[in-house]
């Protein structure tokens, strides 16, 4: 369960950005979580609930955008979205190791005033 540390980092970054913009309250945080990031959205929400009291994001909404996985076949170089965690190329049928997207763990935006 490393989601608490990541949420702490998100809240710290959000608060800093809000204050730098002259805002005093955060209304919404938007995060993008890749399906391969190793992060459980529910654990992230739990961490948010636990950490937000006493911060300027105390009453904020948390939007989690789940980013799908995109791979590239190491043989034919076709890009494809795998259905599960075995990344089989739909054209060649061989498993692929190259991941183009799906590892993201980003604080996309903050709404503040």
């Amino acid at each position: 369960m490393h989601e608490a540390g990541l949420m702490e980092e998100a809240l710290r970054a959000a608060e800093q950005a809000a204050r730098e913009a002259g805002a005093e309250r955060i209304h919404r945080l938007r995060l993008r979580i890749g399906r391969l990031s190793g992060v459980e959205p529910e654990a992230l929400r739990l961490a948010f609930e636990a950490l937000r009291p006493g911060t300027i994001a105390e009453h904020a909404h948390l939007d989690l955008e789940i980013a799908p996985v995109l791979c590239r076949c190491r043989r034919c170089h076709v890009e494809f979205a795998p259905e599960d965690f075995v990344f089989l190329c739909p054209r060649c049928g061989i498993p692929s190791a190259e991941v183009l997207r799906g590892l993201e763990l980003e604080l996309l935006a903050v709404e503040a005033s």
Partner: peptide, 15 residues
């Protein structure tokens, strides 16, 4: 709240 809502696009990698 009286101050206008600001949308701050950060794109910050948490790792």
């Amino acid at each position: 709240t009286s101050p206008p809502l600001k949308v701050l696009h950060l794109g910050k990698d948490l790792l």
